[in-house]
Amino acid sequence: MNSELLTEFTYFVLAIFVGIEVISKVPTILHTPLMSGTNAIHGIILVGAILIAANATSPLEVVLGFVAVLLATLNVVGGFVVTDRMLEMFKGRRAPAKPEQK
C-alpha cells in the first residue's frame, strides 16, 4: 500500500465516523429533507464526470463523459433545489402562524 492510498483510506475511515456522528440526533420530521440533502451532496460525482469528459479523446470517452456530466448535473442541481423546496415550507410556517395565535 503506497502512502497516497494510505492517506485516502484514512480520510475514508474518518469520514465514516463523521457521517454517522453528524446526523445521529435528527428528528423524524427531517428524515426526508436530510435524505434529499445527502442525495444532492453525492452529486459531487460531477467533479469526477467533468474530469473524465473534459480530458476525453476517443469518441467513446466523449460520449461516456457527456452522459456522465449530464446525469451528475441533474443530480446536483435537482438535488439541492428539491431539498430547498421542502425546507422552504418548514420556514414559512412560523411567521403566518403568529397572528392567529393572538
Partner: peptide, 30 residues
Amino acid sequence: GLAVAASGFVLNNFALIVAGTLVGASGTLL
C-alpha cells in the same frame, strides 16, 4: 454515496472520497 467514494479512490480525488463516504455513512444510519 459509496459508489462516489470509490470513484474518489479511482481518480485520487479527496472531495469525492470524503463527500461520498459522508453520504454513504449518514445514509446508512438514516
